[in-house]
Nucleic acid binder design. Structure first.
Lengths: 148, 148
DNA sequence: AGTGCACCTGCATAAGAGTTGCAATTATCC
DNA sequence: GGATAATTGCAACTCTTATGCAGGTGCACT
C-alpha cells in the first residue's frame, strides 16, 4: 500500500527531525500512538509491541526518549500510571487538552473541546498558572454496569 | 502539658468520630499531619513514625484508612508519589467544587466558582458522569520562586 | 556501496512505592 | 475485667519504572 509507505516516511522524518534515529521500534511506537484515539500506558504500548519482538524496556525507553524529544506527551492522571500520547500538529509543550479518566476502568478520553468559562479562566489565573485540566468520573460503560 | 493532653483527646475523638479506633499509630499520624504545613508523602510519614516503632505497612494502611474515612486527603502531583494532608474543618471530601493543585508545593485550593462552558458541560456528559474536576499547575507563590 | 561508531536494543536484574497474608496484639463494648 | 473484632508488625510480594551491559544497527561520510 502506498498509504503505508508514505506514512512510514512521514513518521521516520518526524522522529529524525526530533533528533532521534528512526528505528523500527520507534516507528512502531509512534504509529501506534498516532492511530490511538486516547493516551496509552506504557504497559499497553509494550504489550502491543511485544508481538513485533520489541522488548518492554525498549518500549519504555523509547516512550521516554520521544517524550524528551517533544514527540510525545506524558501525563499522570492520578492513578500512578504514565500515559503517553502524540503531540499533535500545532500543539506545543503547554497546549495540552483536558483529559477524562474513568475511575473504574481507567479509560482515558481526550476532550479537545472542553473549555472553562471566561470568568472561570480568570478565577483560575488568579490562583496561578494552570497547565493541565483533568476530569474524573465514570464513563458511560462503567455507569451502566454499576447501576443497572 | 495540658495542651498536649487536650490535643490528644481532640485527635482521638476525631478519629473515633470517623469510625476508626484511636490507636497510637493513628494519633501520631494525624498529629503529624495537623502540624504539617504542606502535604506529606507516605515515605515521609512512615520514616517519621518509624522512630516511634510504627511499621511502614501500618503507616500506609492508616493513611489509606483515614483517607477513606474522610480525615485525610490524598493527592498525586504527577511524580508518582501520593501526598496526604489533613482535611480541615469545613472542608468536605466529596465537595463537588473543582480543585487546583500546585505541582510544586502540593497546595490545594478550592475553586468554588470555576465552571465549564455550557457546551463543554454537554461534551463531558456525553462521555460519562464527571465527579471531579482538577486543575494542575503552579500557584503564584511557586511561580515567583522558579522564574525570578 | 562500504564502513565506523555512536546510538539502540534485548535480556536480565533492580529500585521504589505501595500492598497483602497471617499470627499476635489491643481498643472498645459489655 | 473479658470477649471480640479491629489493628499491628513482619515479611514477602506486586507493579511500575529504571538501568547495566553485551551485542546489533542506523546513518553520516567517504
Amino acid at each position: 500500500m502506498v498509504k503505508n509507505q508514505a506514512d512510514l516516511e512521514i513518521i521516520k522524518d518526524a522522529i529524525r527531525e526530533a533528533g532521534l534515529r528512526a528505528t523500527p521500534a520507534r516507528v512502531a511506537t509512534l504509529r501506534l500512538l498516532r492511530n490511538s484515539k486516547s493516551p496509552m500506558t506504557h504497559a499497553n504500548v509494550a504489550s502491543l509491541l511485544k508481538d513485533s519482538g520489541i522488548d518492554k524496556a525498549t518500549a519504555f525507553r523509547n516512550l521516554n526518549d520521544m517524550t524528551d524529544a517533544g514527540l510525545l506527551r506524558r501525563t499522570e492522571l492520578g492513578d500512578h500510571v504514565y500515559r503517553f500520547e502524540e503531540v499533535r500538529e500545532g500543539e506545543h509543550q503547554n497546549g495540552s487538552h483536558p483529559h477524562f479518566l474513568c475511575i473504574d476502568c481507567g479509560a482515558v478520553s481526550c476532550l479537545d473541546s472542553v473549555k472553562l468559562t471566561a470568568s472561570s479562566q480568570r478565577a483560575s489565573e488568579e490562583i496561578g498558572e494552570v497547565t493541565e485540566i483533568l476530569l474524573r468520573g465514570k464513563c458511560n460503560d462503567c455507569k451502566q454496569q454499576t447501576s443497572p
